[in-house]
């Protein structure tokens, strides 16, 4: 299956080429030169070392959903500046900048679609929009998808890739953790399936809310997953402690400690999601062996 063509036809308006434009790309891990087309056909996985390149939320959706099946929800919900926040730069200027860069109005792309003809709700963090951080618009977009899933009895997939809560929205960003998880409590009571997919990186506020409480948690290989984000600089933590911490936050260690169910490489994500959804559906089809 040609993953990149699917993307082009599926959600043309949302295509953002996050991967370098050049025909050849250097892998940041193994430093081998990779043919870009090859990378795109392989959901952004390096053919030499299996390193998972960062792909956009739209590309992720194209990689897991059926062609042309995605319908966006909550697009009208856009990041605002509730506190007139100014640090080194006014927050609205930052939003504008990231809007230009990603053509998105918030750091989550959400909607409904199908995986092997089975309808699902999906929300994917866009790391290119302020590090995928969680603010009011992101929380609202996720909640609207959860509402849709409850209305239509759909399984929910949230693909988390985020540095955490968005500081420029201060208390409002913190409250999004409670807001989404509160909504998920109703979703759980409705007996519906929630699969959390944790990709690199999933830290801080997002990790400490919905990312960690899927009925099933799936991580991508080598993803950084943890509470203490990369921004804990200048603290009293020593370099060796930090190194141990970062080790413990690798997906493989998180699996070892019992907080994700499995590690799945991106090219197998679609089929894995499909199988899990089928096995936990209300009317699973019988398998004869």
């Amino acid at each position: 299956m040609n993953w990149f063509n699917k993307l082009k036809s599926g959600i043309r308006t949302l295509v953002r080429k996050r991967m370098p434009e050049n025909i050849w790309v250097k892998c940041e891990r193994c430093e081998q030169i990779v043919y870009r087309k090859k990378l795109e056909q392989n959901t952004g996985i390096c053919p030499h070392c299996k390193h998972h390149f960062r792909i956009s939320s739209a590309e992720y959706i194209a990689a897991v959903l059926d062609v042309d099946s995605f319908e966006e929800i909550g697009r009208e919900v856009k990041s605002a500046d509730p506190l007139a926040f100014v640090d080194l730069q006014p927050y609205p200027d930052r939003i504008k900048e990231y809007r230009k860069r990603t053509n998105m109005d918030a750091a989550v792309l959400a909607g409904v679609g199908k995986i092997n003809d089975v309808p699902v709700g999906i929300a994917v963090h866009e790391f290119g929009f302020m590090g995928g951080s969680l603010g009011s618009a992101e929380g609202e977009r996720i909640c609207r998808v959860i509402d849709r899933c409850m209305r239509d009895q759909l399984p929910l997939i949230i693909v988390c890739r985020s540095g955490g809560a968005r500081m420029q929205e201060s208390i409002f960003s913190l409250m999004q953790m409670a807001k989404v998880n509160a909504k998920l409590s109703q979703f759980a009571d409705a007996g519906l399936l929630f699969i959390s997919v944790l990709i690199d990186p999933t830290t801080a506020g997002v990790n400490a809310s919905y990312a960690s409480i899927g009925d099933i948690n799936i991580a991508e290989p080598n993803a950084l997953i943890g509470f203490t984000g990369s921004r804990i600089t200048g603290s009293s933590v020593s370099a060796s402690e930090m190194e141990a911490l970062r080790q413990a936050q690798r997906a493989e260690q998180v699996l070892e400690h019992g907080f994700v169910d499995m590690i799945v490489s991106r090219d197998k994500m679609r089929s894995t999601l499909s199988q899990l959804i089928e096995m936990l559906s209300k009317n699973p089809s019988e398998v004869t062996s």
Binding site: V77, S79, K179, A182
Partner: peptide, 12 residues
């Protein structure tokens, strides 16, 4: 749930 669902400010 409704109480926390109201928290947040965005443009629409």
């Amino acid at each position: 749930v409704e109480k926390f669902n109201r928290m947040g400010i965005w443009e629409e």
